[in-house]
Design a protein around this nucleic acid. Structure first.
Lengths: 248, 248
DNA sequence: TCCCCCGGTTGATCTGTGTCAATGTAGCAC
DNA sequence: GTGCTACATTGACACAGATCAACCGGGGGA
């Protein structure tokens, strides 16, 4: 594991968003206190691999801060991102030894981890947490399936709008903001990473971002700082019905 | 629910493949006997909806025979299949009330069902089964993510080869056949359904199937009966490395 | 029997996105 | 400051796959 080191013990679940709390917190129930004893923190530098596909995974954990990606690569080098890892997201699969995908930190990334063995034996004794984990896995499955319609049926412009819409909403909920009025956030991904997520080339991503800017759907400050003046407009561009759908 | 009726009680887990057994069987452990008491069968006619997206789902269950699809539809009519439902696959999500996708029987379909409430309370008391369900959900998540690289990065020809390869292997394992030597099976999907799964148009599907036939990768008898003379060749066309990968 | 409809195939043409290449720009080392 | 590198933008052109349209063949109903 690259660039790993312990963080100060002061950091605890107070800074974990809701979903993270479910597996990390010392809150809610006495049972969860047990987790405190096997919990530790890891930091990964931007660009480093959290885990390589096929490697043995000896920990599970959730993201405290920073952004990561789950990616898959064909022999000829084509790559497809299969998931974004945003604060509060969980990785690690009880019962599996090998990682199914590369997990890469795209920004500096701090994770709250548990060694796999003790986590699993704790799971077996704590149905409440096991149930929570099943729910989280079902959420991920929904998100993965929702992404399929983006990959399979949406145009390049709609794909970009979908991605921006997801990032904007996740960012807003992280900061406990309502999604009315203008939203501003930093793109945590390069154009190339966006392309890998959307099944496009980086040139097409760049062109479509320019087009959305030209059409006033978004505003850009530098390459990465985005302002969305009208979230409803963006979601319309994404091709979703404005109320429902689109997890992650 | 359309076209539903009970089947004879003689039908039981003897005819369920392995994964199905895990939640359906009266075998393995005493705990599982409890399931016998809340189990029932349903049949759905080809073309009918097993469940509509957004509807209340009051049962869970797994497929005994026949083929179904999970599909999602945009307002403008574009549809994307997000999952295939083959014998031994499970649907239903503990803790969720509403179906997230349309589930459609593409052939006559027999399912082994459990009413949701009693199934869930049984789950809570039977960690062994809950754990199995988590594993199955993780399998589905892997399959969904593996499909993303097909949707996002593969050419039309590779997509068709990927789909044929999956169906061939699932069919072979259902009949306990080794995948060496020629494999023959019936396509359970129309060209249009294949297109919806692959993010293509039905014309492109038809053309690529013709091309694979012309190139000797597959043989066709009628429109639906496929023979794969050389599975390794097909998987090469699919762009997978022949050994690993590609679940479902 | 005929006819119609559904699923499928094939052809002609159009277009969105990929590909290749040139250029711009910010940050960092020296 | 200069030069270097990584990231991003833009243009010209090619091509895979979409679109539109004609046609085929088999099964079921009248």
């Amino acid at each position: 594991m690259l660039n790993e080191r312990s963080l100060s013990p002061q950091q605890d679940c107070e800074d974990c968003p809701i979903r993270h709390r479910a597996v990390c917190a010392r809150c809610e129930t006495d049972e969860l206190r047990k987790l405190e004893e096997i919990k530790f923190y890891r930091r990964f530098e931007a660009g480093s691999h959290v885990i390589w596909c096929g490697d043995r995974m000896d920990f599970v954990g959730s993201v405290i801060s920073g952004i990561g990606t789950l990616t898959q690569t064909l022999e000829d080098g084509r790559t497809q991102m299969v998931g974004l890892l945003l604060p509060s997201d969980f990785i690690g699969r009880p019962g599996r030894d090998e990682a199914a995908y590369d997990v890469i930190a795209t920004t500096d990334l701090v994770m709250c981890c548990f060694r796999k063995k003790p986590f699993e034996s704790m799971l077996a004794k704590t149905p409440h947490i096991a149930h929570r984990l099943l729910e989280m896995t079902l959420d991920e499955l929904d998100a993965a399936r929702d992404w399929m319609i983006v990959l399979g049926r949406k145009s390049a412009r709609e794909k970009i709008a979908s991605l921006l819409s997801i990032i904007a909403r996740r960012d807003a909920s992280l900061h406990m903001r309502r999604i009315e009025g203008p939203l501003a956030f930093d793109l945590p991904l390069t154009r190339e990473a966006m392309a890998d997520y959307l099944g496009l080339t980086l040139e097409t991503v760049s062109r479509q971002i320019s087009a959305l800017k030209r059409d006033g759907v978004i505003e850009l400050e530098g390459k990465r700082h985005v302002t969305v003046p009208d979230m409803a407009r963006l979601m319309e561009e994404a091709g979703d019905d404005a109320d429902g759908g689109m997890l992650v």
